[in-house]
Design a protein around this nucleic acid. Structure first.
Lengths: 150, 150
DNA sequence: CTGCTAGGGTTCCCTCAAGGAACTCAAGGA
DNA sequence: TCCTTGAGTTCCTTGAGGGAACCCTAGCAG
């Protein structure tokens, strides 16, 4: 956990980091996304400490990213993405895109994504929600918004 | 710093986290993106420990995300985004989108982005690099790729 | 040529989170 | 009755983050 509290900064990046910025959280989200939903599965797949896994799962549930639901008469639970959590997966897909491009090396990408709409192996691109054209770091001006601290 | 080393995992998310997953790194990147480039500026703006700022900047430079360049005859340096670093800003823009939607509250988004292409205040949307249609968590199948560990 | 200032770091100590292993608890099943 | 399994909890050790003080270099003022 970052010792400095990011949640109160007037910055959506900092606030988002407060939710999934801790070590392991994005990887937990990834595993849940691809269908791993139980404590033991996650712990074994990630090799994460059980203590930290408990903390992260609680944190993600508290923030409405995951939902904890019983799946048996015994006290057994599984974790599934909420709609809010599914939207966070966008972030993971962009990470995958960057990592595939810059860090995959000779071996190529570890995982491929097939887009339902076109049936092709593809990757994500960022576009403007308004005009649909590409929208990257140098394509925008940054302006103060209504929630700015100043 | 996450104590477990993510860099060797066969996962582009884990590898990307190895580059910018440590506390503060995304916020440093944000500041550099919006034009803050010097050690003292970054330290003052973020309130980060000087020790940690030094470590993070070195790490980002080592990974080719930032470039350290002298800007005076005196030993003064500034940090600027490399092309690789600019592409990482995509990640920040998606964070902003999610944070604005789910965490901004009453006050509204702290910062707005005006898209050069259309001139409008907008936000990013994820689309398929192949067909251009929206591409989110539930719009893809995940398949093993050439660099998969199995 | 001496001292002052400013940027850009180091060094040091303290605390608290991550790692890891052992322990607990509830509900079936043999 | 004991065993097993999933899902945690407890406890100890180590090392990263926070914070403050210190250092080093090069210009510049007197």
């Amino acid at each position: 956990m970052q010792r400095t509290d990011f949640s109160k900064m007037a910055c959506s990046i900092a606030r988002t980091l407060d939710v999934i910025g801790e070590p392991w959280s994005p990887l937990i989200l990834r595993d849940v996304w691809v269908g791993m939903s139980r404590f033991e599965q996650l712990q074994a797949d990630l090799g994460i400490s059980r203590k930290v896994l408990t903390e992260r799962l609680n944190h993600l549930v508290d923030h409405g990213v995951l939902e904890r639901r019983p799946y048996d008469n015994r006290p057994r639970y599984e974790y599934v993405l909420t709609p809010k959590g599914s939207e966070l997966v966008d972030l993971l897909m962009v990470m995958v895109g960057w990592g595939d491009k810059h860090l995959a090396g000779e071996a190529g990408p570890p995982v491929l994504y097939r887009h339902h709409a076109c049936g092709e192996i593809s990757s994500v691109e960022l576009s403007c929600a308004n005009c649909g054209k590409p929208m990257h770091a140098n394509d925008v001006d940054v302006l103060a918004g209504p929630g700015s601290a100043v």
